[in-house]
Design a protein around this nucleic acid. Structure first.
Lengths: 124, 124, 124, 124
DNA sequence: GTGGTCTAGACCACG
DNA sequence: GTGGTCTAGACCACA
């Protein structure tokens, strides 16, 4: 498992870690049941503080994506499910609508936007 | 023009203002050439700090969405164009991919994601 | 608002803070809409680190008990509701059953246990 | 005797063992004088570390729930009594009050809380 | 060795 | 001045 971080980005590091883990699961590079490096290990690997990694792991645990196993360490959950499905859908819809509005304002036609959406899914 | 802000949100207020202006333009509620309230006016209307409104307006100007005339005030640009089209496309693609990965991880199938994308565009 | 902490307790400090805020709300000493001291202020008052207070505040925000207002600071939510009501009920039931089992094992009869429950509610 | 452990829970395993033994006694599934598996036996059965089981047994012995004979092994005490009755009552009251405060804060009315208490006792 | 908790001190975004 | 983020280093509970 390799994470590519941009320490100069305005996106918080723990968010980047969270996103990359989610992307890894979506793409299949991280299989359910697979182990992730320990907090300390990952922190050392990517050169950030252990608390930063821990925060990302905690968020992913709250999201139901990771399971913090007392002996087996950190593993990918078998069935990642958000705590509240309907809230999750609304959140996705909101962010999509905002993205769509931005695209439309800047002259992207509907067909192209839909094409971008399909491409995004495919490129995972 | 009515802005609905959520002061309790973790999204910065200036971002909310920016998003709502963009949404207004995308939806047609704000036509090109139309005037927006001055920084002072809007700040007073929605009860936020001058600097906050100013920051949002500056960002929208940098995005090519607003034109700020010394005398005619703040007006919606005739043809909003991002400073760098290819950068803009990449940014949209990135955010879409991230959204798609999140959806996929949480069990949303591809067809439903595409449907959500279309709905998002329609509901603008 | 006065918090009484036991720094020697095995209960984490941020848990104690959380419990006392909840107790304060239940007892009416903290009214909805009322402001709480800032993270730094409270940390200084009770002599703990700011991060410890922050963790407690974040948990209470996640529980819907507090609202972190961008300008008004930290205030008690108008209608504290757990994110998932049914999960909350189950959690309370579980903890009650465990408590009941402990009481029964140590010879507390049913009537007395129920009396203790009523007393507990009354003494809030 | 069957123990159901949740290795993913944030509750320490030795606590889970302790709770389940207490619950077993309260429910009558474990009768006074009945034998429990040895530390080694139980550890092997449920697949945890020796020390973990030992810690749970020691706590239960300190609580007066188990008697550990060098030859007869581990047996359920005839009349489980906490070392200090008044301390025990206070502890139960404290935890009940905390639970009640939490319930009240999250909108559970008094009658329902009392009903939950009765249910908890019945469902042992 | 693992994660959980706490401390101390720092910089930045926000309003 | 507020909370958000990150770092560094420490101790402890758990297994």
């Amino acid at each position: 498992m390799l994470l590519t971080l941009d320490l100069q980005s305005d996106v918080p590091i723990y968010q980047q870690i969270r996103q990359q883990v989610i992307h890894g699961i979506a793409s299949g590079r991280l299989a359910p049941g697979e182990s992730l490096p320990s907090v300390r290990q990952l922190a050392a690997d990517i050169g950030v503080n252990l608390h930063t990694v821990n925060k990302a792991y905690q968020m992913l645990r709250d999201d139901g994506v990771l399971v913090i196993h007392r002996q087996r360490g950190v593993v990918v959950s078998e069935k990642p499910k958000p705590p509240d499905v309907s809230t999750f859908r609304l959140s996705v819809s909101d962010r999509l609508e905002q993205l769509a509005a931005e695209a439309k304002t800047f002259g992207v036609p509907e067909e192209e936007f839909c094409a971008l959406c399909r491409d995004a899914w495919q490129s995972i």
